[in-house]
Design a protein around this nucleic acid. Structure first.
Lengths: 420, 420
DNA sequence: TTGAAAGCGCTAACAT
DNA sequence: ATGTTAGCGCTTTCAA
């Protein structure tokens, strides 16, 4: 509720009918300073009450309702012709207005549904818009309103199968609310990352979801200073303009370990992701801790990378340990798939000789042979939640961030079985 | 509505004056169902605040749900009238100019390196820019110059592993030239597609790469009429503002067939992509024609879809044909992987019992077990070429399109072997 | 309900 | 080499 109210306050969006209602209220209460009013129409339309506060303050309602006589006659309009200096612009609103015999303002109002316009006028305008195939110019709009309807989504590498579903979740959520998203891949490159951040600021995005570990809090400060909301993954805690989403690997990992223990395994290895990756480290630590707690020697523990052939060399190391483990926990499905390939090369049967557990549940996990037992990360939800987090935070008056949590869970397939 | 009103009036906090006002409002709006009204007085006094929340939660607002909010926001600070009407602009060029003691034009020239500026002036400007952490506003720039540095990339579904690398190729090429890209997924949805096209036009993109078969030439005419360059995949021929990229499946398919024939296969089946997909049809036709040419009975020929479990039912059909084929050509790797899973389920050994060939060479093809023999489509190149095509076309005075061709080639792995 | 006019922040002639 | 000025197309008061 509270956040709802704040969202009300920030939108500053006043549909027409209420304008009229507002006038009534205004005149009625003109003597009462400090009156704030909020109007909400259905779940969608919201009127800012802080805005109204502004109004009240600004105009102080000097008995506005009484029509003043002898109002100043404005000098007539210049009505100069808009000439387009050879640029390949489409039609402009002015042209539409002229053709429809109304003012540009009216066209704007029709197109944005910000005021009630007489049915007849509206019809005429829309007709002309259709005839001329007029499309409004987003940049002009953004400039005029001072706000953009863009969000940024920063990932490290689109080729990593971890991301597509997350992107989809984010984009779908954004589109649903009428926002566009600018997708940026850092490609793990510092220079590129820098320039991405600049681009995002220049593009005046409202918020940015940073879904890669290759950007840390400090790098995001530029965004925050620019008043842009940011949401991070697996970094706490929230603060002003900064929300976080934490994926709780714990639960899934615990389930996985129980599963493995239940199958009689006494010794498991870990192939973690790269050591310079926040998330990978979190996972590794959780894995090692969990394993120790259940008295499985997590040996060896190897760090790998997220390349698609990751794990191959790690597997060699594992197979050559004296105390050969009967299960391998992998820091990602990609690593697991790589490991499985390598294991097969080496003649180790999965799961007869060695069980393999992945993390993520990428779409190929179940197409692997044997289908991969893995810890599912709700990637689409992560994306959607990231957007929600931004959207919600930016509606708060103080734009204070929040921490979100998402669960993981074990998906048992056929890459795990009882220990030899 | 009614109950809300009641709840307000029942709070007992309602001073008579407002009661009266409330009555007016009630009568005024009683006809508008779904309208909710909250009244807040001054900074301190709040009417029906919590109650209103309840109501909203119950009736209109589908409770936020996801997570616990960081720290609860304070009861609204009330009287704060300071509200920035949605504009969170940073500094402007004018400000920079003033601070640096030059004109805005000079700042612009420095930042864009469009004119020689005295070293001293430039230094001063850049210093101020640094100090103020000034970022220029892309929208204003786009408006002023009348051109945007945006390109659109339309795909059907980001979750399809065919796309990520293509996206990467396109984006990388665009970024290299300083352009941004707006990525849009149609999700095979007509309405969505429509709105994407509109969005792209409104965003004044320079060009659009349409990499999905779910948009055809006619749908693109809107773009072209708006002066936006378009590049299509597997559609000929080029025309003004329309370039095409054709992936020559022929060659790869021929190689694949030679390969299969060379292995002694006499009978092959085909599992093609969906029948409503241009590319899928092209591939199917090429496959069937090629097979016939080499006297392999392409039987059965089945159409499938691009879902990840595609091919499962097709496999059943194939296994039940009397003249059981010893090889299966699949319209995509995804289909092939699905088919392989299904074959294994059915107890058919790959490749001993049946050879499988895919198309695309998605990154998982070589992680499949057995690694998939497939026809590689240079997806990254497709993306990069799409951008090139647009960029080049738009530089031409007549903006005449061109046709580009990309080759495919067979990649032999272990899912194919000699016929039984 | 509608119109007129003043910008939004930047660039690009045209001056100097 | 730098300043002035006039918009780009749209939204948004304010006025009617």
């Amino acid at each position: 509720m509270r956040s709802f109210m704040q969202s009300v306050s920030e939108t500053g969006y006043l549909p027409p009918l209420y304008q009229c209602w507002l006038n009534i209220v205004k005149s009625f209460f003109s003597s009462l300073s400090g009156l704030l009013i909020a109007v909400v129409l259905g779940p969608e339309i919201v009127i800012g009450w802080a805005r109204i506060g502004n109004l009240l303050a600004e105009s102080a309602f000097p008995a506005p309702s009484i029509a003043r006589e002898g109002s100043l006659q404005q000098s007539h309009s210049g009505s100069r012709l808009a000439f387009r200096g050879g640029k390949r612009m489409g039609h402009t609103m002015r042209e539409v207005a002229k053709r429809a015999g109304v003012s540009p303002a009216t066209v704007s109002r029709v197109l944005n549904k910000t005021h009630y316009i007489s049915v007849e006028t509206e019809r005429r305008v829309l007709e002309v818009v259709g005839q001329m195939k007029y499309f409004k110019n987003v940049h002009a709009r953004r400039l005029a309103t001072g706000r953009s309807d863009l969000f940024g989504l920063v990932i490290s590498e689109i080729a990593n199968p971890y991301f597509p579903e997350m992107i989809h979740g984010f984009q779908a959520a954004a589109w649903d609310r009428g926002f566009d998203v600018l997708l940026c891949n850092t490609q793990y490159d510092q220079a590129r990352t820098k320039s991405i951040l600049r681009k995002l600021i220049e593009s005046d995005v409202r918020g940015v979801a940073v879904m890669t570990s290759s950007i840390d809090r400090s790098m995001a400060s530029e965004l925050i200073e620019a008043g842009i909301g940011v949401v991070f993954c697996n970094v706490s805690p929230a603060e002003k303009l900064l929300s976080t989403i934490s994926i709780d690997y714990q639960r899934g990992i615990e389930q996985a370990i129980e599963h493995i223990v239940g199958l009689g395994h006494r010794c498991a290895a870990v192939i973690a992701g790269p050591d310079d990756n926040r998330t990978a480290i979190t996972i590794k630590d959780a894995l090692v801790a969990g394993l120790k707690k259940r008295d499985l020697h997590p040996l060896p523990v190897i760090s790998s990378n997220y390349r698609i052939d990751a794990g191959a060399s790690a597997v060699r190391a594992i197979l050559s340990t004296p105390d050969k483990p009967t299960a391998i926990f992998c820091g990602s499905d990609l690593i697991a798939l790589g490991a499985m390939s390598a294991l097969e090369e080496a003649g180790a049967g999965i799961p007869e000789d060695i069980s393999v557990i992945g993390i993520d549940d990428i779409s190929f996990a179940f197409l692997a042979r044997p289908p991969l037992t893995t810890i599912r990360v709700p990637r689409e939800r992560v994306g959607a939640t990231a957007f929600e987090a931004l959207d919600r935070m930016l509606k708060l008056k103080r734009r204070k961030g929040a921490d979100y949590y998402l669960e993981t869970e074990l998906v048992i397939r056929r890459s795990t079985t009882t220990a030899r």
